[in-house]
Design a protein around this nucleic acid. Structure first.
Lengths: 324, 324
DNA sequence: TCACTCCTTGCACGTATGTGCAATCCGACT
DNA sequence: AGTCGGATTGCACATACGTGCAAGGAGTGA
């Protein structure tokens, strides 16, 4: 679970460190570094890639705090969340868009997570994309908690969700707490019963102690349905039920309406995601959104006060503030 | 004094920020960025240079804390200071060596200085080299204090020292407190008198409140004499006096012996640097050394407990620990 | 000891990046 | 309006960099 405890890697890491110092702190060329390290230039190139990929070298882009973009300022003013607008050309398709937002988040995420922290994470296409790109950062005594179950009629969901979880845990050297339950129970009573088990209670308790929550948004009725809605988690009856209840989206499979309310939505009694009350107590709640099809969902999440830090692509940001 | 208050720069800075995000967070090529920004690739290259030079982009090389080099560990163990060994090939000449150590320090310095802090800085060839390369970092309500006077028989020293001070102040957006006195008075009584002036007292008081001190080392009797010893600050009598007193070096024109003591060194009564007692109360005391000719001086400074963080080139580090 | 696999290295190539230079733009002063 | 200096731009070139590939090395198992 730890990062560099293989002693064989130690030499490589040391060289990577030296190369990084020479390259990034002293502006030598790779050629010159190769000479000092008695190796070839291409090896140095690879060493530096390695250094960046493992977080030995950390490149931050810091908005000089006085100059957040106009969009970011406006979002902050209107919704009281810290916005990070990711520049993405409007002509980009939804896949690129998601990928680019996820990549940016993955690079920045380390700034929000540190030793002795607990981070809750959801699953879905957004989280999956992020997980594939996180820049590692070594931490101690930290934990990753799964926010909601991932099993469905076809699979236990353990593979998919735990792959995501695992990448986060690995990148941060954190202990991973899986949540081995289906996304939705058939019978609410089963959920009630299971929740009383001590093993589950422990997990729920950890969720209540999260320092950071990281999640995307689901949007059931848009042209580009999210993972939950396409993955066999819900059947037609469920959709009807959501539709009748006026649901516009979900966070970690907890559904909400345009006004942010969740009460009386039947599916929530069977779902496994954390009550919004739990999320609202979490100090930092990072939401990642790409593509304006998620706008209605985003507005609802904002109304529900689920978000403290919002990452979104430029087009969606513009759309968000375009209405009075 | 502030960094980007020229509104004309604002566009450029915004573009630089966007380009940086695309380049460093999304791994686009400059070509692709040029298209998104509707400009030429070379302009993007220049924008990125600009972003790096102004600290918009911050590249850190973080030793994964479990892996300081053997040298760094040993220095830590033996002298109780945090060591940062800068890799420099042994065959490098003294000028390169100084330049490379200074460059490294200049890039890292921002990590030690923040808003609401006071940093005391000395002058000399080391400090000058550092000042020429500092990566800017915006801070608020911070101050740079000159540690010792710089005037000599030929000049008031204001030009040289204030150029260094100015670059630090500029890089951090900090207010600069100059110390407009000679490095050494002819008559100790003049110093006494001046120190009672309120304008001076205020400055001395600020020194006592420093959060960080940054200084190089002087070494009077080595083959490569430091700035103080070559710059017309001392006459032959002074040298004799230092020699007789067993002086091995100075910090901010305060002289000390091999055992770190300063008492009874006549020149100190006429010098303008801060008492070691003042330095010793400063939480962080960063010393930058390059070239093993400064070894005796460094040992003395270590004995005097003047240093909490030591930056030095690899050769000097090896020499430092080579003696039992 | 040999054969096999997996990992690392250097080479060669194509692409990406930095930079001198000339053209152009912009603001200022006459 | 006209002219001048300084800054900014794009081009073209030289250099620096990333990466597929084949060769070599280290480790493993028969």
């Amino acid at each position: 679970m730890l990062l560099n405890d293989d002693p064989a890697q130690s030499d490589r890491t040391r060289d990577a460190l030296t190369a990084s110092q020479l390259y990034y702190l002293q502006d030598l060329t790779m050629e010159a570094i190769a000479q000092e390290l008695h190796t070839s230039r291409s090896s140095v190139s690879r060493l530096l890639s390695h250094a960046r990929a493992t977080g030995l070298v950390d490149i931050q882009v810091r908005s000089p705090l006085d100059a957040p973009s106009r969009l970011e300022q406006e979002i902050q003013a209107r919704f009281e969340v810290t916005a990070h607008v990711v520049p993405v050309p409007d002509r980009a398709n939804d896949v690129d868009r998601l990928e680019r937002v996820a990549l940016s988040v993955a690079r920045i995420l380390g700034q929000y997570f540190d030793s002795n922290m607990i981070m809750g994470i959801a699953w879905g296409s957004t989280m999956s994309a992020i997980s594939r790109h996180i820049t590692p950062k070594p931490t101690h005594n930290s934990q990753i908690v799964q926010l909601n179950g991932a099993g469905n009629l076809r699979t236990t969901g353990l593979g998919y969700a735990s792959e995501i979880l695992g990448r986060f845990g690995n990148a941060f050297g954190a202990h991973v707490q899986q949540f081995p339950v289906p996304a939705f129970f058939d019978d609410p009573a089963t959920k009630q019963a299971l929740w009383r088990e001590r093993s589950m209670a422990r997990l729920i308790e950890m969720q209540a102690m999260m320092d950071v929550a990281l999640f995307g948004l689901g949007s059931p009725f848009s042209e580009v349905p999210s993972h939950v809605y396409a993955g066999g988690y819900l059947d037609p009856d469920d959709f009807d039920s959501l539709s009748r209840a006026g649901v516009v989206g979900d966070v970690a499979t907890v559904f909400f309406r345009a006004d942010g309310s969740t009460d009386g939505i039947p599916l929530n009694a069977r779902g496994t995601g954390p009550d919004f009350a739990v999320l609202q107590k979490t100090p930092r709640r990072i939401c990642v959104v790409s593509g304006s099809s998620k706008l209605p969902s985003l507005r609802g999440a904002l109304r529900a006060n689920l978000i403290t830090d919002l990452f979104l692509d430029e087009g969606t940001a513009r759309a968000l503030v375009s209405v009075a």
